[in-house]
Design a protein around this nucleic acid. Structure first.
Length: 421
RNA sequence: GGAGGCAUGGCAGAGCGGUUGAAUGCACUGGUCUUGAAAACCAGCAAGGGUGCAAGCCCUUCAGAGGUUCGAAUCCUCUUGCCUCCGCCA
């Protein structure tokens, strides 16, 4: 959520900045509501002050045993007027908030300007991809031949778009999760969480999934709960409505979760295999930091996630998203993609974003700075990483001509084997 | 699912329907004392909004939403969360 004060003070700049993300956004309505609200509030405040004073007078008189009918009837009228204005004020500030919640975050000045993913910038290139002296198979065929993936049965149970890992495949999936958790835990000082997978609408509002993207999430109507599309939602809301201590920052949180996405609107895209599924596994990294350090923290976060790709011996590249491809809540974002030689495609396995104070404002997550002033924290998050695509890239990259898979050294302790055949 | 209890500042914990944004303690910050520290003593210490150069002044907020009243932390209703007991259950 943007700061209404900043909108008031820098309307032109903010509009220009928003246009880089989406040229159709307009702030006219917000500015108008804000103006109305301001005049109403100052009128209301004056009346409230009068009411407070007179009520106190009555209190004093009563304690002296005096009575005044005039004052009573005066106040009766006044209080009716105040109540009316209070209702109006509530209505207007609610509508202002509703409007503000629809406006995306401003892109950071360093973000390359562009309209679509065509304009993204490759920041870290993959110089040469792994050579094969045979035609590499895709993960669907590999998985079937090795009997480690079973999409047909998953479809029978749950419908299309749900992966099912079997035998060594299930072991590999579990190993990847554990490996990734341990990696970030041991090397970067994170606190591990195992969070709820279902959240209240309010929590999804904090991180920006609501109110605009409710169609992307699974919703349990009976209990008014959403299945999380990422552990980011649960992790970020840990400090909702709190004031953190300056000395407690930065906070590094990590959590594994299943992630649930309806993928509405992407029908026909990547319908086969592990590339786009309704349920997947991901280790998510979330940071709460003081504002001055958030961009430094973002660079650290991407590098950390990329390190995992290296250890898994995958070909990867880091993409800097352009303004037009940036998500609703992000001020700046890097994607990490790994190469899947069987699919002959780059697969997005991580997205590392700085949200600045966009989410913290929505979730009211603040800290007391070293001068004792309360400020909004900056939040960041990054996948570290998402498994099903890593799984696909991994078995495609490390396949041998006979169809077996060699397991990267870093992962071997987690499987207890060095190959799947 | 049924029955009951509770919800106040960073924490603990008072609070008769009327100068209560809220006693007190702890924590924290500054000061006195001390070679230094501790202890003791003194002072300060909620957030948001408005206005002002500033000091300040005004408004809102005692889980949330409604209601009663001239006036609500205090009374009523609903919701949510926590605790206790019963039922069910991995």
């Amino acid at each position: 959520m943007l700061d209404i004060k900043k909108i008031r003070e820098n309307l032109k700049n903010i509009e220009q900045s928003l246009a880089k993300k989406d040229k159709d956004i307009t702030l006219n309505k917000i500015v108008e509501i804000d103006k109305n609200l301001k005049t109403l509030v100052s009128k209301l405040n004056n009346l409230q002050a009068e009411q407070n004073n007179k009520s106190k007078e009555i209190g004093i008189m009563k304690s002296k045993g005096e009575e005044s009918e005039d004052l009573f009837s005066d106040l009766k009228k006044l209080s009716e007027e105040v109540k009316l204005l209070e209702k109006e004020e509530k209505k207007i500030s609610l509508s202002l908030k509703e409007e503000l919640l629809q406006i995306p975050n401003l892109p950071h000045s360093s973000v390359p300007i562009g309209i679509s993913d065509q304009d993204n910038v490759v920041k870290v290139k993959c110089d040469k991809k792994k050579d094969f002296n045979f035609l590499p198979k895709n993960h669907i065929d590999l998985g079937k031949n090795l009997d480690i993936l079973d999409f047909e049965t998953a479809a029978k149970i749950s419908g299309s778009g749900f992966p099912m890992f079997k035998g060594k495949g299930a072991l590999l999936e579990r190993a990847l999760i554990n490996f990734m958790i341990d990696f970030s835990l041991k090397n970067y000082g994170y606190t591990e969480f195992f969070t709820p997978f279902m959240v209240k609408p309010d929590s999804a509002l904090t991180t920006g999934q609501l109110p605009k993207f409710d169609e992307d999430m699974y919703y349990i109507e009976k209990d008014d709960l959403f299945l999380i599309p990422t552990a980011e939602v649960s992790l970020t809301n840990i400090h909702k409505d709190e004031i953190l201590k300056f000395e407690d920052l930065p906070k590094y949180y990590l959590g594994y979760s299943s992630c649930f996405r309806r993928e509405a609107g992407s029908y026909g895209k990547d319908t086969r295999g592990l590339l786009r599924v309704h349920q997947f596994n991901k280790v998510e990294l979330v940071k709460f930091v003081e504002p001055s350090r958030s961009y430094e923290e973002l660079e650290m976060l991407v590098n950390q996630a990329a390190e995992i790709c290296k250890l898994l011996e995958l070909d990867y590249r880091i993409i800097e998203l352009c303004t037009g491809d940036l998500s609703f809540s992000a001020a700046k974002c890097y994607d990490i993609e790994v190469w899947a030689p069987g699919e002959s495609k780059w697969l997005e396995v991580s997205s590392c974003s700085n949200f600045e104070d966009f989410q913290s404002r929505r979730g009211n997550i603040r800290f007391k700075n070293n001068k004792g002033k309360v400020e909004f924290v900056h939040t960041l998050n990054g996948s570290g990483l998402a498994t099903p695509r890593i799984f696909a890239s991994l078995i495609e990259t490390h396949q041998k001509e006979d169809g077996s898979i060699s397991i990267p050294v870093a992962l071997q302790p987690y499987l207890g084997i060095s190959e799947i055949k």
